[in-house]
Computed example of a mutant assay.
Amino acid sequence: MLKTSEQPRIIVNDVSKRFRLRTTQSLKELFIAWTKRKKLVDSFDALDSIDFVVGEGESVALMGYNGSGKSTLLKLISGVLRPDAGKVLTRGRVAGLIEVGAGFHPDLSGRENVYLNAAILGMSKAEIDARFDEIVEFSEIGEFIDTEVKHYSSGMFVRLAFAVAIHTELDILLVDEVLAVGDAPFRDKCKKKIRELVEQQKTMIVVSHDLPMLKALCTRGIVIKRGKAFFDGPIDEAIEALKASKR
């Protein structure tokens, strides 16, 4: 799918990921399973030999039904997980909205968490200072910015985390279902901001079950089925392939 004139931002080369699953939950179950010589640990192949390249400025929808491996793949691209086989390479600054609020420290205030999260995303203090007011205004946190985030609702978490990520000097944005959270006006504002990034030729991978939104934001779709690449092509065809993958 990569045009010869484009420089790759993301390379996923023959990537596989396996998780080990415990088949017992307690010491008693463990002992019984051991005496009966049953398997104590099982494995699950979340991804199997996935290959694709995303060019600079591409907006790609990562699609598939629950359990297909989409979120695992996004975590591999973000660096949260490492592949068991193959390589994941990224070029530029990556901002991930994958597990929103996961990087927040509960005992720190919203203000302190803005600086902490933005620093993790690679911003300098001067960059954060310059964008702080814009981040707070976008998040609609207002008077709660100096409150410890352990007192925040899940919606407040989402708004502040999204605002930080979306206002970084990013090259690659990874979004996993975060736009399904929050009230309708805030979701619309998020979609508008993401469209601005598309117009700025930022590279994006979006995971969502909102097909109209994916069609509006993305030009390409990659469909994952049971950990394998099922389809990679234009978004309209990808949506049809997604429906076919359920059969």
Rank of each mutant, 00 (worst) to 15 (best):
T4N: 10
S5I: 13
E6C: 08
P8Q: 01
P8A: 09
I10D: 08
V15E: 15
T23H: 10
T24G: 00
T24A: 00
Q25G: 03
K28V: 04
E29I: 11
W34C: 01
K39W: 07
L40N: 07
S43V: 13
L47I: 03
S49L: 07
F52P: 00
V53A: 04
G55Y: 13
Y65R: 11
S71H: 00
T72A: 10
L74C: 10
G79I: 11
D84A: 03
A85P: 01
A85W: 12
G92P: 09
R93C: 11
A95V: 10
A102T: 08
G103K: 03
G103W: 04
R111Q: 12
N113V: 06
A119W: 06
I120T: 10
G122S: 08
G122P: 02
G122F: 09
M123P: 04
I128E: 13
I128H: 06
R131P: 01
F144E: 04
F144D: 04
M156A: 12
V158M: 11
H167F: 11
L173G: 00
L179N: 01
D183G: 00
A184N: 02
D188E: 14
D188P: 01
V198K: 08
E199D: 14
Q201W: 15
I205S: 00
K215L: 07
C218N: 01
C218V: 04
I222M: 07
I224E: 04
R226I: 02
R226Y: 11
K228S: 12
F231P: 03
K243I: 05
S245V: 08
